[in-house]
């Protein structure tokens, strides 16, 4: 029990230590142009906060990223979109500094030659065809052959066969792909994507994830926000976890995933004899604590699977009847809360 707790704490500390070391270097020294692993810094946030009146949306974020895929992970309302909007210049930070490719983002239109953005907003021009929409982006980027560039981008997202159809007639998933195509049309060095896989069918989801992974491997910087762990696992070797507007963890996804899997869970057990069953549950391997809450038992365990399997047998031995077993910490929000704590 104690070992598991120690492992989790050590992993947490390791992640924090790495994050703090990187952030300290990145945030404190403008002259620094590379990450500790030698990759160039392409995205840099330094002590950035954003508030609306009394409400703090993002608090003192500092990180530096280089080429490759980085996932911005957080539950809805955690501050992912606000962070991406500040990185792309749609929002002005209340405090702190944002730089992309070494340049300030605000009031710097030429920088967008190197940046592609898939915004959160769902609105598109319903009267344009997919081809016209992507070609518009190509023309605004002053590409030499906008029509061909648009066709190539639509081919990449597998929309070329419906290129002449109006966006107003597109499904949500197709609109998302059209948005991705307009962001890719000029072959940007840095790509920001805000929940780009929303509405995509499973096959397209996999295809898009493979596309982003390939782009990251080819040296592009991809920052992609998501609240779905599975997506992040498929794409991001590097992860930024944002909870309540703060950077909760930063580092390799697998380390964070292990931390998430090892964290203690709370399980609620409703039964006929609370007193008898609580003594039996305390004796189970992995159980950290058991207490009564609203007439039910709430146990904290570091081995939830084994715990679920052992409860019926323990109840039988204790002479109690079990009415229900319910995991209380399986949602992403609780995972993030744990990381924050």
């Amino acid at each position: 029990m104690a070992n598991i707790a120690n492992t989790a704490n050590l992993t947490n500390m390791a992640l924090e230590t790495r994050s703090q070391a990187q952030n300290a270097q990145a945030a404190g020294n403008h002259a620094m142009t590379t990450l500790p692993d030698g990759r160039p810094i392409t995205i840099h946030m330094q002590n950035v906060s954003k508030w609306y009146g009394d409400k703090v949306a993002v608090s003192d974020l500092s990180f530096a990223l280089g080429p490759g895929v980085t996932a911005l992970l957080g539950s809805n309302g955690a501050g992912k979109s606000t962070t991406l909007k500040m990185l792309t210049g749609l929002l002005r930070p209340s405090k702190g500094e944002v730089r992309v490719l070494g340049q300030p983002v605000l009031a710097n239109p030429p920088l967008y030659r190197h940046i592609g953005v898939v915004p959160e907003q769902e609105g598109l021009y319903p009267f344009l065809s997919a081809l016209e929409f992507v070609e518009l982006a190509a023309r605004l980027h002053h590409l030499p052959n906008p029509r061909e560039a648009a066709r190539a981008a639509l081919q990449t997202v597998e929309l070329l066969d419906v290129a002449e159809r109006k966006l107003g007639a597109f499904s949500k998933g197709m609109r998302q792909r059209a948005k991705i195509a307009q962001a890719l049309v000029h072959d940007p060095d840095v790509l920001f994507l805000d929940e780009p896989l929303t509405g995509a069918d499973p096959r397209q989801r996999v295809a898009m994830m493979e596309l982003f992974t390939r782009m990251g491997a080819a040296g592009k910087t991809i920052l992609i926000s998501s609240h779905i762990l599975y997506e992040v696992e498929r794409m991001g070797s590097n992860v930024l976890v944002i909870v309540h507007g703060k950077l909760a963890a930063e580092g390799d996804f697998h380390s964070i995933r292990a931390l998430m899997d090892d964290r203690p869970r709370r399980v609620r057990v409703t039964c006929s004899d609370v007193r008898a069953l609580s003594q039996a549950l305390v004796a189970l391997p992995g159980t950290r604590s058991v207490h009564v809450e609203d007439g039910a038992l709430v146990a904290e365990t570091s081995a939830p699977l084994e715990f679920h399997q052992a409860v019926p047998r323990a109840a039988q031995q204790a002479g109690a009847r079990v009415f229900g077993i319910e995991g209380l910490d399986e949602d992403l929000e609780s995972v993030f809360r744990y990381l924050m704590s």
């Binding site: 792309t88 210049g89 749609l90 239109p109 967008y112 030659r113 609105g123 598109l124 982006a137 605004l140």
Partner: peptide
């Protein structure tokens, strides 16, 4: 209102 302004402002085009 429609959320389409970013498709113009996030391009290398002066305001």
């Amino acid at each position: 209102e429609d959320g389409t302004l970013p498709y113009l402002t996030l391009k290398p085009v002066s305001r």
